[in-house]
Computed example of a mutant assay.
Amino acid sequence: MEVGNTTRVTVFVLQGLSNNPQIQIVLFVTFLVIYLLILTVNLLMLLVIRTDSHLHTPMYFFLSHLSFLDAFYASIIVPKLLENLLSKQKTISLLECFTQISLVIFSGGTETCLLSVMAYDRYQAVCRPLLYVGTMNKKVCAGLAGASWAIGMGTGLLNTILLAQQHFCGPNLILSFACEFPLVLLLACSHPSMSVASILTTMVVLGLGTLVLLLGSYTHIIMTALGINSASGQNKIFSTCYSHFLVVTIFYGSGVFRYRTPASGSALEQVLSV
């Protein structure tokens, strides 16, 4: 911290997952293996989709964006987590912290949009199959993917710029293993009304907006499937949407439970964050 007319925090201290050296080693190995698996699987997915001409379809086009985003998202958090598991001083500078927050919001915002776009793609394929090829052409797919990345980038930058304008004078302990927007905002000495309004607006407009699109798409898909007399036809429809629906449930479910839990640094919080 700098001492003068006011005290200003220059670094944050991360609580981490454990202070036990033996447990830290186990966690380091576990997260390193998981991280390498995430990178390997997603990069292989990108390679297969790019090289196999049979997979040059809208569904796999969006899946390639999602795979890249998942590898990118893990790379925002895990390297710093691994570093802190091996160090006694679990610190992170303000610049690193704000960058991490910005990229996390950017990735989360982009993923919500991509998941909605993928649900819309499945809606077109199941409910309007005769028009599917014309509706989901390369130009439309590129535009939807580009819009998803642009929206994510915009929300990440806006919320982080407003957060960076807050004054941090101590304490500087973040009750997590990474910089999370709500936990950092709790440490602000100045009134965070603009940041609170911004993140709430983002959650309502982007979170609920994309959720409504998701639910609308799946409602039409389920109604279409139930209207088919053939059991094999129903199974075919549900099999194409099951994995995507599972990802959506995990993504939104963990996010809702995590940010409805009071910030206390409890084990439950840490598990939900992971």
Rank of each mutant, 00 (worst) to 15 (best):
K139L: 09
L36N: 06
G253V: 00
G109N: 01
L86H: 10
L94S: 10
I151E: 01
K88I: 11
T202K: 11
N19R: 14
G152W: 00
F181W: 10
Q15C: 03
S243W: 15
M203H: 05
A267V: 12
I237T: 03
C189Y: 02
L114K: 01
T155K: 05
S67I: 01
A197M: 15
K80S: 14
I222R: 14
A71R: 04
S176R: 07
A145G: 00
L200G: 09
L183Q: 15
L94I: 14
V9I: 04
V9T: 05
G108V: 01
G143T: 00
S266M: 04
Q165L: 11
L44E: 12
V204S: 04
V13I: 11
T202E: 11
L208P: 03
G170I: 09
L206Y: 06
I222V: 15
S193F: 13
I222K: 11
A178R: 07
R122L: 09
A145K: 00
L81V: 08
K88D: 15
S67F: 02
L214Q: 15
L37N: 00
L36P: 03
S64G: 12
L63R: 14
H54W: 07
S148W: 01
P192G: 04
I25V: 09
V41M: 13
V196L: 08
S102F: 07
C169N: 13
N235M: 12
E269D: 14
P79A: 04
K138H: 14
K236Q: 11
L66N: 02
K88Q: 15
I151T: 02
G154M: 11
P129M: 06
L55R: 01
L44I: 13
L103D: 10
N235R: 13
T135Y: 12
V3H: 13
Q165R: 13
S198I: 01
V140P: 03
L215V: 15
D121M: 11
P192E: 03
K139F: 08
A267N: 11
T240R: 10
C189F: 04
V140N: 06
K139Y: 07
S176C: 04
L186W: 05
V33S: 01
V13L: 10
L130I: 05
F98W: 12
G143W: 00
I77V: 11
I49N: 01
G156S: 01
T57C: 05
L246P: 07
G253Q: 02
T155N: 08
I222S: 12
M194E: 07
K138P: 08
I23V: 10
L114T: 01
V29D: 04
V41G: 09
M118L: 11
A267Y: 11
L162H: 02
M1S: 12
S273H: 14
I105P: 07
T110S: 02
S53K: 12
H167V: 15
G209N: 00
Y218N: 12
Q15T: 03
H54R: 15
H54F: 09
Y60L: 04
T110A: 02
G156K: 01
I49R: 02
L163Q: 00
